[in-house]
Amino acid sequence: MAEGPGAAPPHDCPGTSSAQAGRAAACQGCPNQGLCASGGVAAPDPAIEEIKEKMKTVKHKILVLSGKGGVGKSTFSAHLAYGLAEDETKQVALLDIDICGPSIPKMMGLEGEQVHQSGSGWSPVYVEENLSVMSVGFLLSSPDDAVIWRGPKKNGMIKQFLRDVDWGEIDYLIVDTPPGTSDEHLSIVQYLSSTHIDGVVIITTPQEVSLQDVRKEINFCHKVKLPIIGVVENMSGFVCPKCKNESQIFPLTTGGAEKMCQNLNISLLGKVPLDPQIGKSCDKGQSFLSEIPESPATSSYRNIIQRIQEYCGLHHSQEKII
């Protein structure tokens, strides 16, 4: 980074665990300076241990990430949850940590639902007996309510979602994230650090503008040592409902996700074509998989879901052997 004129940018933040926390030159003017200086954050957050206890009943944890917004993270997360929950013997939970733009409640047909308090914590909202959902959307009183929060408050909410929600026995916990590589992402990884995260699914669209952000996201995963299950290319091609010809709305000038995955040695889980019905199903809060079972997008989703199941199964048994 270039050194700016005037005030020094705090890019040499000593980190909250450092003895210099809140005392270094870079801490001047940082809103968290007081907190860091008090030493309150120097000790590891006791919540991490509590979350570890809580997550003992959760077999598999999958994060859905993408650098760019609007590429279909929530749509994919919702359908991954629907798809996995089609097996009635499996318990599936979907956690939406997009605090400022929660879209999961709408997509799961749960808009206007409220969270209930029970003796053992917050009860998630159930779509079906084996599919539960938690989102900040359930805590808002009106759809116009904006969550105008800075980082620390968002982190507190995520901590509560992990520690205080009464998830019960769960086979798959799917975590839908906001775009970017910032507070929410660091927090979820940090809070789950003493538990085992199976891996992340990265969503992209074929354009270079999106892939550019995805490469950043992959670097983020490497930085925080998150295993990558694979990449899903969303909105690959559009089939005109009138002439059935396929065209590229989002052109792949640099070879799309396929080439990127080859270059970076990451598996491509599949490509999902753009079907106008997907958006409509999400608007109505229904599962596209069961609404339009014959669409090529449905079969593509199913293949991807199966590969994720296999990945989790394989890694689970490997761990047991170890």
Binding site: P31, G151, P152, D183
Partner: peptide, 12 residues
């Protein structure tokens, strides 16, 4: 160009 900016709020 692929560098990830992994920053929390105060830095941003």
């Amino acid at each position: 160009p692929d560098d990830a900016v992994v920053w929390r709020g105060p830095k941003k």
